[in-house]
Amino acid sequence: MRDDDDFLATFKSMGEAVAGAQGANLAQNYILHEILCDLARRSPDPEKYLSSMFERVSARADQGDVENEGHPVTVEFRWTVENLFKHAGNAVRRS
């Protein structure tokens, strides 16, 4: 019975940690999106600015410690960067 209680307490704690990390990640993503859109809108060519910034940020994956393209960290990094810039580009085009 004690093992079950320990497991449940650990499971609950892990769930709270994941929720906290997801909340922080979401907030940072929204903040970066707004900053990126503001910077792009101030540029003479917003599309070119976003494209150039995307290339610079994406290049960091090539220079990182995780060398394997299929590694989950690299896959998540690339997916997150692509989505951030896609959504920022859409927002800048709509404004």
Rank of each mutant, 00 (worst) to 15 (best):
K12D: 11
F54M: 09
E69C: 03
V66G: 01
M53E: 13
Q28L: 11
A9Q: 11
H33E: 01
R60P: 00
R41H: 03
D6P: 01
Q63A: 15
I31D: 12
Q22I: 06
D62V: 07
N29K: 10
H71F: 01
R42N: 15
E82F: 03
D6N: 13
K86A: 03
E82G: 06
A9F: 06
A88N: 02
R2E: 15
V57T: 01
Q22L: 14
A21V: 05
F77H: 08
G15Y: 10
F11L: 15
A24T: 02
E34W: 05
F11K: 15
H71N: 07
D45R: 03
Q63K: 11
L36Y: 08
E55T: 09
D65M: 05
E76D: 08
I31P: 01
H71L: 02
E82H: 09
A59Q: 06
N25T: 13
G70R: 05
H71Y: 01
N68Q: 10
M53W: 04
S52K: 07
D38M: 10
S95V: 07
A24C: 04
F85K: 00
A19D: 14
E76Y: 04
R60V: 07
G23A: 13
Q63C: 08
S58H: 01
C37S: 12
E16R: 11
T74S: 11
T74V: 13
A17D: 14
A21K: 10
N90V: 07
Y30V: 13
R78T: 05
L36V: 03
M53D: 03
V18N: 04
P44Q: 01
R60I: 07
R94F: 12
V73S: 04
A40D: 10
K48C: 02
K48N: 11
D65E: 07
A91Q: 02
H33I: 00
E55C: 10
A27C: 05
R41W: 00
L84C: 07
Q63T: 05
V57C: 05
P46Q: 08
E76R: 04
Q63P: 00
M14N: 05
T74D: 04
R94L: 15
G89D: 01
H87W: 07
F7I: 03
R2H: 12
K12G: 08
K86G: 00
G15D: 11
H87K: 00
R94K: 15
F7N: 10
G20N: 14
I31T: 14
A17S: 13
Q28W: 05
G70M: 07
G23N: 06
R2D: 15
M14G: 05
N83W: 02
E67N: 08
T80A: 10
D45P: 04
A17M: 12
K48S: 09
G23T: 02
E47M: 05
G89R: 15
V75H: 06
P46S: 11
F7D: 14
F11E: 11
V73C: 00
F77M: 07
F85G: 00
N25Q: 14
A24H: 06
Y30H: 08
R42M: 14
T10Q: 13
R42C: 15
L84G: 09
A19Q: 12
G23K: 10
N25D: 12
N68G: 03
V66I: 09
S58E: 09
R78K: 13
A91G: 00
G70D: 13
V92R: 08
G15T: 04
A88W: 01
V92P: 02
S51I: 01
